[in-house]
Amino acid sequence: MTPDSASTLQASIDALPRLAPAIFVTGKGGVGKTTMAAGLVCAAVDAGTRAVLVEFGDGASGRRALGQARDRIEHVIIDPRRAVMQAAGPVFGSPLLAKIALGNFAMKPMINSAPALRELAVLELCRQTVVDNPGARVVFDMPATGHGVAWLRVAEQIGKLTRRGPLYDVCARVQNELLKPGRASIAVVTLPERLVLTETLELCQQLDEEVGLPVDRLVVNRVPPVPEAQALTDARRVAAAGGDVGAAAARLVEVLSVRSRMRAEVVEVLEQVALHEHARGLTRLPMAPADPHGPEVAAWLREAGAA
């Protein structure tokens, strides 16, 4: 890495944008979204701010990621399968009217196979959670991307489709009170691999351009530790001498070369990311050999100035 790009990388880390009260944590599957979301709520609570972790599942992954901190954090679980009924009450005027309209023999199977409606209902419940918790940081652990961008666009699209009426009003509320810069931030979690990072940059651009929400944190998770360069030089010399020890040293050379080549690739890719216009708030987190918990991630985030 040249000194110039090194300072660009450093500058982009130093000047991290401010996080809005609502934070959507997104990224592809298995990159550590839940852990990151848990880290963000723990960091807020440690700093004396109220915080809520919102999860769309059975609640098990959020509880696991919070670890010991689970007693101090408010944990809200939104069940997407029940979201339509929950969100529909105000739309139809009353829960009873909602039941008449949606419990209808034609509507029931339709709602079960209409994904956009369910996603809109989930967004409306997200909006309600933010409104119900003024002054608090509300962190949403979003489902894996692919659906992530589509999900955040659903309110805008259904709004355009309906143009008027109570369903349109829901869309407008979600757009104005939740999905506005300053009200919501996006944190994208990714891994230090070329392919994954390339996809992530596409995602950041989509979020910027199609959803209109800023990516205020781009978190590169599991950056592997690399032993000092001298070890590789020494191991090469010992390997060249041959014998049993030489053969063993050759294996060390193998492992260290893979690591240093991986590291070189990570640095190279991060340089490109740092120069990318849609990637702000670049943050690196270390690789942990075992599952890290929220308080541990909160400490890493504070260290990186990203909390």
């Binding site: 530790p225 032993p227 000092e228 001298q230 070890a231 191991a235 010992v238 063993a248």
Partner: peptide, 26 residues
Amino acid sequence: AWAQTLSGASETTAAMGRAIELLERE
């Protein structure tokens, strides 16, 4: 097994030793 061979060998330098320790711990 190679890590053990190296840990006991006189040819292993301090830098190599630290690298092996880091890898083993991980």
